[in-house]
Design a protein around this nucleic acid. Structure first.
Lengths: 246, 246
DNA sequence: CGACTTGTTGACGCCTTTCAACGTTGGTGG
DNA sequence: CCACCAACGTTGAAAGGCGTCAACAAGTCG
C-alpha cells in the first residue's frame, strides 16, 4: 500500500512543443472536448494561447497542492489523478482520458496530482489566459460547468462504490464504467483496455493489489470476463451489470 | 444496513409559502449563498421567481433520478444527500447546510435524494426559470461554477476518506470537517452540533452504526472528544487532526 | 406506564488485508 | 543466445478490523 513517489520524474518544462501542424481545426479530440462549443474564429483565438505538451510514461503533469499555472486538454493517452496521505496511502480519484479537461474548476491550486500512465499528449493553456477567455465567452463557461456537473456525478458514483460495495462489486463496476467511458470517445467494445496496473486499480477502488488480482481471476474463472494481456474481455455483461447494479 | 425508505414522507407541494416578509435583501444566508454575487436589482428579479418551501424532519425535498423541476437555496436546517442501492445499502454523499445550493449542475435529473434532518427552510426556483437567469448573468454562472469546484474538492476528500482511512480516522475526520463547515457560516466552536443520527454518519463514512458508536465512545474515553447530547465537544484538536491528517 | 426509536456494548465470524513465496514478462549486457 | 534482474502479477496461509447478531440502556411520545 505504500507508494514510492520518488520514481515519478517531473516533466521538464522545456519539453513542450509548438502547436500542432494543422491547428485546432483538425484536433482529434475537438468534438469531444470543451472546445466543441467554440466557433472557428474562437478556436483560432484559443489556439494562439495553446501549446502541445508531451509526457512519457510515469511523468508527472502536475502535483497536488502546486500553484495551478496551467490547465490542460488531454489529446491522447491516459493519466491518473491521485491524492496521497503523508504515510503513503494513496487514493486515485479517477483516470483522465482523451477529451478530458484538467483544471476544470480554474482554482488557484491543483487538488490532485496527475501522472501519465503511458505516452500522453496534452494541449496546455496558461490558467490566467484561459480564465480571461472564459470570462469573455459565457458559452465556454457553461460547457466547463456542464463537465463539472458530470465529474460530480462520477464522484458520487465512486463514493457509493467505495463506501458500500464489496470487492467483487467494485471490480465489476470499475470494468463497466471504464467500458462506458471508452464508448463515449472511442468505440464501444466488449474488450476493454486496461492502461493502468493492478496497484492503480487497487488505489482507485480502495482495495489492495492482491484483492484486485483475486477478484479479476475469480471473475475470469467464473467466465464473466476473460483476462487478456493489457486488458479484459467482458464475456457476461448481464452478470457484471447485476453485480455493479446501481 | 438496510434502510427503510418508506418512512420518508414526500413533501406535499401545497406546503410552499409565499416569499419571505422582507424579501431577499434581508435573507439570512444571502451573503454566504450564490446570491452574494448579485446586485440589488438582480436580487429583485430573482426574488420574483422564488418561493419559500418549508420541510419537517424526515420529509423528502427530492428523490434521486426524479425530473429536476426545481433548484434550491438552503436557508435554514440541514439535509442529507444520499444514494440508494436496490438492496437497501445507502451512501450519504454529504449534508447540505444553510447557504448551500441544491441543483448546482442544473442537470435534467437529480443525482441524489435530499431529505430533511430536522426543520428546513429552502428558497425554491423553477429550474428553467433559474437557468434562464443564469444564461443572462455570466457572473452568477461563474459563482455556481466556483461552488461546483468546491463540491468537487469535498467529494475528492470524501473519496480519500472512504477508500483509504480506518474507522477511527473516518470519524475524526468527519467531526473536523463538520466543524470547519460550520465555521464557514455560523461561528467557529469546539462544540460541534450533530444534527444527524448514528446511522446517517455510518452511511456517510462507509461504516456500520455500531462501528460509529464504538469509535465515538473510544475517542470519548481517550479524552479526544466529549460526547454531549446532540453533539460533541472537540477536546484534543491536535490529536484529532493528526488522525485526520491531509 | 408501555411501546417505540435511538444508541451502546459484547461475542463471534467473515471478508479483506497482511505477509510471503513464486511465476511471468521485458529489458540489459555478457 | 541466454543469464540476470527488476517490475508486475498471482497464489496461499494466517491475522485482524470491521460487520453481524443479539441484548440491553436511555430517551420520547402516546
Amino acid at each position: 500500500m505504500l507508494i514510492d513517489t520518488g520514481s515519478c520524474e517531473r516533466v521538464p518544462h522545456a519539453c513542450h512543443h509548438g502547436r500542432s501542424e494543422n491547428g485546432c481545426a483538425d484536433c482529434k479530440v475537438r468534438l469531444i472536448s470543451v472546445c466543441s462549443v467554440l466557433a472557428l474564429a474562437e478556436l483560432e483565438e484559443l489556439e494562439a494561447l495553446s501549446q502541445h505538451l508531451i509526457l512519457e510514461k510515469g511523468q508527472t503533469l502536475f502535483g497536488q497542492g502546486e500553484h495551478a499555472g496551467s490547465v490542460f486538454n488531454v489529446i491522447a493517452g491516459v493519466l491518473r489523478l491521485s491524492r496521497l496521505l503523508p504515510d503513503g496511502r494513496r487514493q486515485i480519484m479517477g483516470f483522465a482520458l482523451p477529451g478530458d479537461f484538467l483544471g476544470l474548476a480554474l482554482q488557484e491550486r491543483y487538488s490532485v496530482s496527475a501522472e501519465a500512465l503511458g505516452p500522453v499528449t496534452t494541449c496546455r493553456f496558461g490558467r490566467e489566459d484561459f480564465a480571461a477567455v472564459v470570462e469573455a465567452k459565457p458559452h465556454l463557461l457553461k460547457s466547463l460547468h456542464e463537465r463539472a456537473g458530470y465529474e460530480l456525478t462520477l464522484a458520487q458514483e465512486q463514493m457509493l462504490l467505495l463506501g458500500r460495495r464489496t470487492a467483487e462489486e467494485k471490480v465489476a463496476a470499475f470494468l463497466l464504467s471504464l467500458r462506458e467511458r471508452y464508448a463515449r470517445t472511442g468505440h464501444a467494445s466488449v474488450t476493454v483496455e486496461l492502461p493502468m496496473g493492478r496497484q492503480d486499480m487497487a488505489d482507485h477502488l480502495g482495495l489492495t493489489i492482491e484483492t484486485v488480482s483475486r477478484m479479476l481471476n475469480r471473475l475470469d474463472r467464473a467466465h464473466a470476463i476473460l483476462l487478456v494481456p493489457g486488458g479484459v474481455r467482458l464475456l457476461d455483461l448481464p452478470r457484471l451489470e447485476r453485480m455493479a447494479t446501481c
